[in-house]
């Protein structure tokens, strides 16, 4: 399956069955399930989604090593890319993080008060870190790119300054997993821990792919735009 990649002519259902993580992509483009045997192209047309962009994103979600060619990148609309990323942020804020937070609270309630308090304290720090990262992109990076699309380039920022620092977020997420797996003492709360860990692993996968999309698609797209408007 290594060099396998998705194409606009395959059936949309097959694309999802090949990798459940592509379900995440559907939602973020506003595509609903129940598309019968329609092809990717047909479904995208119905929802007014750019097929090239959709297929590229699914390929990267599916295969970390997938490299988009320059013409493929150039063919994608940057505004739709931004709206996909914004949708992802919204999904993290409205669904993923609240879900994780409530699993943390359940686990915390099953621990001794001191351990529970320590767990919530650590999670809150992690939460703030993510929020800081998301709002930086929402308030600085995306508006800059939108100005660029409208040919109103601001001189004081370029995409090169966008050093996408996911490092702290990844480190804290790793620490959180370690703490839950190893360091909260045995306490008959395995089920709560597993529920929380499942959520954390899925979130981690999602964030990793989000970063891949930014590095492999967004940054090259914006570099291209910058060179055109320079």
């Amino acid at each position: 399956m290594k060099n396998y990649s998705f194409s606009p002519r395959m059936k949309m259902a097959d694309l999802i069955l090949a990798n459940h993580i592509n379900l995440l992509v559907l939602g973020r483009f506003g595509i609903h399930l129940g598309f019968a045997d329609k092809t990717v192209d047909e479904v995208c047309l119905k929802y007014k989604v750019n097929t090239d962009l959709f297929v590229l994103i699914c390929n990267i979600f599916y295969d970390h090593d997938f490299e988009a060619s320059k013409p493929q990148i150039a063919a994608c609309p940057t505004d739709e890319m931004i709206s996909f990323l914004k949708k992802s942020h919204q999904f993290y804020r409205v669904e993923r993080l609240p879900e994780i937070k409530s699993a943390i609270q359940d686990l915390s309630a099953s621990c001794t008060p001191i351990h529970g308090k320590a767990l919530e304290r650590f999670f809150n720090e992690y939460y703030q870190e993510i929020e800081k990262h998301l709002s930086y992109e929402d308030q600085v990076v995306f508006p800059y790119i939108e100005e660029l699309i409208n040919y109103q380039k601001k001189a004081d920022f370029t995409i090169k300054q966008f050093e996408d620092n996911h490092d702290n977020i990844e480190i804290k997420l790793d620490d959180l997993k370690n703490i839950i797996i190893k360091y909260i003492p045995e306490n008959d709360n395995d089920e709560l821990r597993k529920l929380l860990l499942d959520k954390l692993f899925i979130f981690e996968e999602d964030l990793n792919r989000h970063q891949l999309i930014e590095d492999k698609l967004l940054v090259p797209m914006v570099l291209l735009l910058e060179s055109q408007t320079a």
């Binding site: 650590f122 992690y126 480190i171 620490d175 959180l176 370690n178 703490i179 909260i184």
Partner: peptide, 22 residues
């Protein structure tokens, strides 16, 4: 040895192991 990299993670480790208090 601990597998924990961030300062806040290490603080949490110390709290969980009763090495420090609040």
């Amino acid at each position: 040895k601990t597998g924990i990299k961030s300062v806040s993670g290490l603080t949490m480790y110390a709290l969980l192991n009763n090495l420090i208090g609040y």
